[in-house]
Structure formats: C-alpha cells, structure tokens
Amino acid sequence: MIDMNKKWARFATYAVGLLIGAGMWQYFGARGNQLASASLTETFSRFIRLIENGELPTAVANSMQLYVAGFSAAIIAASALGLLMSRIRFLRVGIENYVMLLYATPMVAVVPFISSLLGPFFMAKFVVVFLFGFFPVLYNTLEGGRSLRPELVEVATSFRSGEMALWRDLLIPYTLPFILTGVRQGAGRALVGVVASEFLVSSSGMGGMIRYYDGNYIIEGVFATVIVLTAIGVLLMWLGRLLEDRFAAWRGLNR
C-alpha cells in the first residue's frame, strides 16, 4: 500500500491519474469517429490557434461581460430583497412560496419564454443570467436574515438602536456569510445561464462558439471552448470559497 499521508505519494498519484486521463483522451480521441471526437493534441493546437487569431479571447470577454452584468445585478437585487423580507413579515409571508417554487424550478426551462418575450437581444440574455443567479442568493439571504437571534435584536433595542443602525450593526454583518454562500451557489448557476442564453437566445460568446463548431463537426473547437468554461467554473468556485471563509470566520467556529 502507498502511504497517502506522504506528500510525494499523493502528488505522484495525482500525476499518474492525470497522465492516464490524458492518455485515454489521446487514444480514443484519435481513433473515434472524426465527426464526434477530437484528441488531446488536436484540441490543444486548436486552442492555441483560437487564442492567436483572437476568436477565443473575444468570446470569453463577451461572455464574461454578460456574466458580470447579469450576476452582479442578481446579487444586489437578491440580497436587498432577502434582507427586506427577513425584517418585514408580510413581505416574507407573501413572497416566500414563490421564492421556493422558483428556486426549485430548473431555470433553463423558462429561457425560451424569456427569449420570445424580449427578443434575441442582450436584454433577454441579461435577464436569463440574472434569473439563474438570483434565487440561490435570495434563498440564502432570507434563511440567514431570519435566523438572526431575537435575543440579539433585543440587545440592540435595549441600547436604543434604530432600524437603520440595526441593519448596519446586526442584520448585514450577520447575514453576510449567508449571502456569500448564496453567491457561491449562484456563481455556477449564472455561468450555466450564460451558456444557455448563448445557445437559446442568440448565438454569441463561448456558447456561440460551441454551437458553431459543433454544427460544423469541428469537435476540437468545441473541446477547446469547453475547457475554458471549466477553468472559469473552477476559478469561480475557488473565489467563492475564499470570500466565504474570509467573512465567515466567526460563524464556522461559533457553531
């Protein structure tokens, strides 16, 4: 048995796993149906070409613009609404069921509807990304805000805090880690929203590239784009975890 507690042993296992994966990709990619597969080396050389001719960087910039616009709007709107709902009872009782329903709905199902409602324009894509990112943030903010202990609210009242100061001193700092959990969950979903809208609303960005190369049986072009999406997804997850840990130090150790 290899001792997995040794650093070098873990690293070696890691490397062997990657090598086997790369080898299998190369072997099956080269021998498979040329209209439905591409080898590692083919994908890599296509990747270099797509960067050199500027197609991939342009598409990434395009998609990320959509992502940042839609998701940041979603974060702001969802956390504001979530905080309001956690403090105003009738708002919570009135809207809560819709939030649960929409949180559970696979958002991709409503993309065609939004597309036909708003036309094949940026606005429709923006709304799609917004909706993908909105509900995880709202759900988590609401769950956080309402779990604020009543004793702490009583302390604030006892020290004559107004509602504004209560938000500043209690509600927002307490809810922030919950909001960030929502942001981390929403980050991945919003990326799905970007690709879905580029598939289904109108062709553009990385989603557009995938559609184009797939339609023309240039599978290495599809793979090269997907790898970039994977990298972005991993980066976002890492960033989300970092943010969450940074602001949730007191929460993790307190429970």
């Binding site: 702490l152 009583e154 006892s158 004559r160 700092p173 007191w250």
Partner: peptide, 19 residues
C-alpha cells in the same frame, strides 16, 4: 421605551459574535 442611561446585562451575554 428603552432610554438613555439605562443599561442591561443579559443572561446569555447577548454579545455580537462577529464583533
């Protein structure tokens, strides 16, 4: 209502864990 010059010490401390 709570007024200035009156302060309370709470049974479960009532400290803000993030401060």
């Amino acid at each position: 209502r709570p007024r200035q010059g009156v302060a309370m010490v709470f049974q479960n401390f009532g400290l803000f864990p993030w401060k």
